[in-house]
């Protein structure tokens, strides 16, 4: 179960400005999915290590040699608002 308040909280964490309708829909859908997912509580995981990656690898290193990266112009070429060699964004605070 997840309630409307929790959905709004998670939407803020997710940086999603959901419409009222989306909040309603997602409250129902996420609750339903979580009901299924909650069945994981049936599995005995006592003493079991978590798996984050399946291929055993350690210390994948390369020689510390600098190589060219993307040119600044190329890196900026897809930006919605490139400006003066940088990514321009709106002010963190709305104009009064």
């Amino acid at each position: 179960m997840i309630d409307r308040e929790q959905v709004l909280h998670v939407a803020r964490l997710s940086r999603l400005r959901l419409t009222e309708e989306e909040v309603d829909t997602l409250t129902g859908e996420l609750s339903s999915v979580l009901d299924h997912v909650d069945k994981l509580a049936e599995v005995d995981i006592e003493g079991v290590e978590p798996t984050s990656h399946v291929v055993p690898l350690e210390n994948v290193l390369r020689d510390d040699v600098p190589v060219p990266s993307l040119d600044r112009d190329v890196a900026l070429s897809q930006a919605p608002d490139p400006h003066d060699g940088a990514f321009r964004v709106p002010s963190p605070q709305a104009e009064a």
Binding site: L40, A41, V43, I45, V48, P50, T51
Partner: peptide, 8 residues
């Protein structure tokens, strides 16, 4: 929990 079930 899901990561541990993955191990199982």
């Amino acid at each position: 929990r899901a990561q541990r079930v993955r191990t199982r």
